[in-house]
Simulated scan of single mutants.
Amino acid sequence: MTPDDSNSTDASERDYEELLVLPAELRHELKEPMGPIETDADRLLETVDGPLITVGDVVTYHLLAAGRVPDVAFVDERTKRDAVDEKIRETVATEPTHEVINPPAELSGDVIRALREGLASDEPATVLVDGEEDLVAVPAIAAAPEGASVVYGQPDEGMVHVTVTAEHRAEMRVLLERFDGDIERFWELLGTRS
């Protein structure tokens, strides 16, 4: 299912909806990991009990290689602003269930619809992002059910694993309220209220 509830629709065929933009003064707050860092995918998966949301090509690749298909995976065919190698790209991005537009330092309507639908689906979803997927960890933590795992990459360190709690969700909601843009529309599309 695609974000507009029709069959496969290319991201470039839809109107881009800017929702939230990360203000410069918040960038430093997002540099710190939101959970423990793990370098071993098998060891990380031992602590996953519930839905798994991954943000990033390399993280998604390592968890797939360890035998766990994420319930929702966000990939953009890039790592640290460079293209991922062919093996990673072929593993994580060959058959996306959603293709969305999400510019760097933004959260678009496209990516939020894909997150919501991925979380609601009984089938695994892979979201191929035209732009950048880095910030998706924040609304993923805000929207994921308690006990879900959100895993994203910390450059040159490893995989950050957040086991979602009510406290995590509340912290992310407060953070999201500080973004610039249409916060009411954002909560409406995410399907939750602040």
Results as ranks from 00 to 15, higher is better:
T2E: 15
P3H: 08
P3N: 11
P3I: 02
D4G: 06
D5N: 01
R14Q: 08
Y16G: 04
E17V: 11
A24T: 06
E25A: 07
L26M: 14
L26I: 10
L26W: 14
H28N: 08
H28G: 08
E29D: 12
E29K: 11
K31Y: 08
E32L: 03
G35L: 12
P36R: 13
I37S: 04
E38H: 15
T39S: 15
D40A: 05
D40K: 01
A41R: 11
A41N: 11
L45C: 08
L45G: 07
E46F: 00
T47D: 15
D49P: 14
D49Y: 10
G50N: 12
P51A: 13
L52W: 08
L52G: 10
I53Y: 01
V55C: 03
V55K: 02
D57L: 04
D57P: 03
V59Y: 04
T60F: 05
A65K: 07
V69Q: 10
D71K: 02
V72H: 05
A73R: 04
A73V: 01
F74D: 02
F74H: 09
D76G: 01
E77N: 11
R78I: 03
T79W: 13
K80A: 15
D85N: 15
D85G: 05
D85M: 15
A93L: 12
A93P: 03
E95M: 06
P96N: 05
E99D: 11
A105Q: 14
G109V: 04
G109F: 04
I112Q: 03
R113A: 08
G118L: 01
G118R: 03
S121P: 03
P124N: 00
V127Y: 05
V129Q: 10
V129S: 12
E132D: 13
A137R: 06
V138F: 13
P139F: 10
A143T: 09
A143M: 12
A144E: 14
A144I: 12
P145M: 01
P145V: 02
P145D: 08
A148V: 10
S149L: 06
S149T: 15
S149P: 13
Y152R: 13
G153K: 13
P155Y: 10
D156Q: 12
H161V: 04
T165G: 09
A170R: 12
E171A: 12
E171K: 10
M172W: 08
L176N: 05
I183D: 12
R185M: 10
F186K: 00
E188R: 11
E188M: 09
L189C: 15
G191D: 13
T192A: 12
R193P: 12
R193A: 10
R193H: 13
